[in-house]
Write a protein that binds this DNA or RNA. Sequence first.
RNA 1: GCCCCCAUCGUCCAGCGGCCUAGGACGCCUGCCUUUCACGCAGGUAACACGGGUUCGAAUCCCGUUGGGGGUGCCA
Length: 469
Amino acid sequence: MTSSGVRVRFAPSPTGYLHIGGARTALFNWLFARRMGGEFVLRIEDTDGERSRPELIDVIFQALEWLGLDWDGTPVHQSERGHLYSAAVDTLLAQGDAYWCACSSEDVKARAEARGGTPGYDSHCRHLGLGPGEGHVVRFAVPDDGVTAFDDLIRGHVSFDNANLEDFVVQRSNGSPMFHLANAVDDADQGITHVIRGEDLINVTPKVLLLRAALGAPGELIFAHLPLIVNEKRQKLSKRRDDVSVGDYIERGYLPEAMVNYLATLGWGPSDGVEIRPLAEIVAMFDIADVGKSGAFFDVKKLQHFNGEYIRALSLPQFVSRSTRWLFDDAPWDPERFDIATFEVLAPLVQERVKLLAEVPDFVDFVFAAEPVIDEESWQKVMVKTPDLAAAVLDHALAGFAECDWTAAGLDAALFSYAETHGVAKGKVQAPVRVAVTGRTVGPPLFESLEVLGRDETIRRLAAARSRV
RNA sequence: GCCCCCAUCGUCCAGCGGCCUAGGACGCCUGCCUUUCACGCAGGUAACACGGGUUCGAAUCCCGUUGGGGGUGCCA
C-alpha cells in the first residue's frame, strides 16, 4: 500500500492482441496511478477457458512494455485463483443471495420469446430449491426493487433500478466463475481502490456492486468510465472491422512516445493546449475528473503528425538505431548490399521527411538496390510528357557529371548550368535526373543523393534512362 | 423493445454563468521558403444539434425533443 492508498488495475482478457482501446484504458489507469503516487497492477482475466489463449498474455505484456506503461508487482492470473471464486459462490449460496439454476440458454431464450421478445432471464429457478447438477449454473438473486447507484468520477451519479437487472450467472455449468464474480472478488482481494475502464462496461457496474455488497467487500470502490474510442462511423473500435492492434502500429514504425502522447489526448487535454509534450508533464497535469464524456475518434492522420514530430525530435544516432529494424527485415534490397555507414550519411535527410519509420526504406532504396525501381507514373510525367527536355537534360547531365567535382555543390553547378543557359526552372531540370537515378519524382535532396550513389553508378543509370527516352 | 450514457469547427481538445464578435491542435485551402518531397513561416476555412425555461446575463444550469453510441451472453 502506498502513501496515497491508491491502487488501480488494468485487467485485459487474453482473447486477442492488445488493441488501441485497451492501450488507452491501460494508459489512463497508469496516468492516474502515477499522478496519485499509487500503484498500477495487472490482472489477467482468463476465466473463460474456451476463449483464452495463454500465448497472447506475453504479447500483451510486451505491448504494454513497448508503450512504457510499467506495472507494479506480479500480474495476477484469474485462472489460478479458482478457489477464491468458488468460496465466494458458496458464501452467496449459503446466504441465499444466489441459487442453482437448471435452465439452458435455449430455455431462457424460448421463454423470453414466448413472453413477447423481451430478452433476459425470468428468475424461473429462483425458488425451486435446486442443487448442483449436470448443466446447472449459479445465478445471483437480484433484489426485486430498490436502486443500485454509484458516483462516477467522470460521469457523475449513475443509477440503475434493480427491477431492470436480471438474475445473472455467477458460475458456469462447468464450475468456472463469470467475470463479474471474479472481478468483484479480485478487486476486493487485491485492495483495488479505483476502477478506470471503458464505458462499454458501465452497465455491469451495478452487478459488481451488488456482488460486493453481498460478499461484504470492505471499503468503497470508486469508478471512472472512460469515453469509448470510436471509428469513422462513431462506433466502438472493433478488432474485426477496425485496424486496432497495437502490434500493427509497432510494425508500421510508430514511436511509443508518439502513440502514448496521442492516446492521452483522446478524452483528455492539457489545459494549456500544448498537446505534444513529455509523458512526465502529462502525468503532472493529469486529472481523471477532467476526462471528457463523449466518444473520441481515433484519427490516424493526427497520430501520424505526432509521430513525425517525435521522429524529427530524435537525435541522429537514435533515429538510425530506431530505423534499423526496417532496414534489415523485409527491406526491398539484397541485405548484402546494405551499408550502415552509407545510410548514416543519408539519414538526416530522411529523418525530416518521414512520418513512419516503415517509410525509411523508400527514401534510400535507390542506393542499396542494384537497379532503381522505376515508378511508372513518375516516368510518364517527366520522361514521356516532355521527352525533348528530358533527353536534353539527361545529355547535359551525362556530359557534365563525367567531369565535375563529385560533391553536392559540384553536381549542382554542373546540372543547373542548363537551367541558366536555357531559362528553364530548376525544378524541371532536376526531375529527369531524379527519375532516372531514383525511379521517382520525390525523394531526398538530389545532389546529396548522387554524391552517395557515386559517379559510375549515377552515369550508368543516366545512360540507361537516356536510351529509353 | 428495455436499460445506461453522450451532444462545441470534418476530427481531437479548451471553455466549468459575464474575459466568447468561442481559443488551440490535426486535416483541408492559399501564399512564402525551395532542385522534388518534407520541414519551417504567414494567412484562410470551419462549430456551441433543436425547443423551452432559470438568470440582469447561458456554449456553460434545468427540462423536453431530436440525433448518436453502449449494453441487453453459461464473452470480457
